[in-house]
């Protein structure tokens, strides 16, 4: 892999007057012990848009995504510095209630990870713990979220069956349904389709496109076609830096940085 200079970068500014920003980072650094995985990344994410984070493996895109809802807190020896601005608050600070925050910034992981409970319980589990009660309310929640995740028609007759009996693609859409059942503002997706076959992948993509008018979506993906197909903005990560951030069409058709051009044209990755 070539070594591209981190000074040579292009970050598109989003004017707050024209773009409503849901969440943004300012000079975000992530350290694992002594090594620095993210070298100061500042990015804005526009509301009700899909932003794709692309880059080779080891570029830090997943690490960055996981810091946005502070999932890295749980890994021993990880330190995150810099600001994560959400609703005028720096949520990367000690006094933030991370549990509350994660309700509004949901996450879907690379491998589908449904609980070994029924489909119904997978969706209602967290809402119930947060005081959503009543059979009708919960039934309705299950129906709407499964519909939004394009899973309702396939499972409506077997809501009591174990989530583990579903196929991989169905499990991943169940995980999306489970995440949106908490009615989050933002949905973080960490390579949600990488463990899936092409058909399941395209259903998941359709699901995301349908969700975008309700949620701000940030998706890490390895698959450049996928980024080009579904995202509005794309950030290109390279060795812990963002070298280019722009509207997706620009990144893929008129990249301003050599490294980006080399990556999207498949010269490395």
């Amino acid at each position: 892999m070539q070594n591209y200079s981190a000074d040579d970068k292009f970050i598109r500014e989003l004017d707050p007057k024209d773009h409503e920003i849901s969440i943004s980072t300012e000079d975000l650094h992530v350290f694992y012990g002594d090594s620095e995985a993210i070298h100061g990344v500042s990015l804005p994410f526009e509301r009700f848009k899909i932003t794709a984070l692309i880059g080779a493996s080891g570029s830090g895109k997943s690490t960055y995504l996981r810091s946005l809802n502070r999932m890295n807190d749980n890994i021993d020896g990880t330190r995150v510095t810099g600001k994560i601005m959400y609703r005028d608050l720096d949520i990367n600070s000690q006094n933030i209630n991370v549990y509350e925050m994660r309700k509004h910034i949901g996450m879907v992981f690379q491998r589908p990870n449904p609980f070994s409970k029924s489909i119904y319980d997978n969706i209602t589990f967290a809402p119930k713990r947060n005081g959503v009660h009543g059979k009708e309310t919960l039934d309705e929640l299950v129906e709407t979220t499964l519909k939004q995740a394009a899973l309702w028609d396939q499972v409506k007759d077997g809501l009591g069956q174990s989530a583990l009996s579903l196929s991989g693609g169905q499990q991943q859409r169940l995980c999306i349904a489970r995440a949106i059942a908490m009615k989050p503002d933002i949905l973080l997706l960490d390579e949600p389709a990488s463990a899936l076959d092409p058909i399941s992948t395209s259903t998941v993509e359709d699901t995301l496109l349908a969700l975008k008018d309700r949620y701000t979506i940030i998706i890490v993906t390895h698959n450049m076609q996928q980024a080009a197909r579904i995202s509005d903005y794309t950030a290109f990560f390279h060795l812990g830096n963002v070298l280019e951030f722009d509207e997706t069409s620009n990144v893929f058709q008129r990249p301003k940085i050599t490294a980006t051009e080399d990556y999207v044209s498949g010269r490395f990755g």
């Binding site: 608050l89 209630n97 549990y99």
Partner: peptide
């Protein structure tokens, strides 16, 4: 007024359970 913003600064059931 932003309820969500307020809730991020307050303790919740989850904080107490933790």
């Amino acid at each position: 007024h932003d309820d969500i913003k307020d809730s991020l600064l307050k303790k919740s059931r989850a904080t107490r359970s933790e």
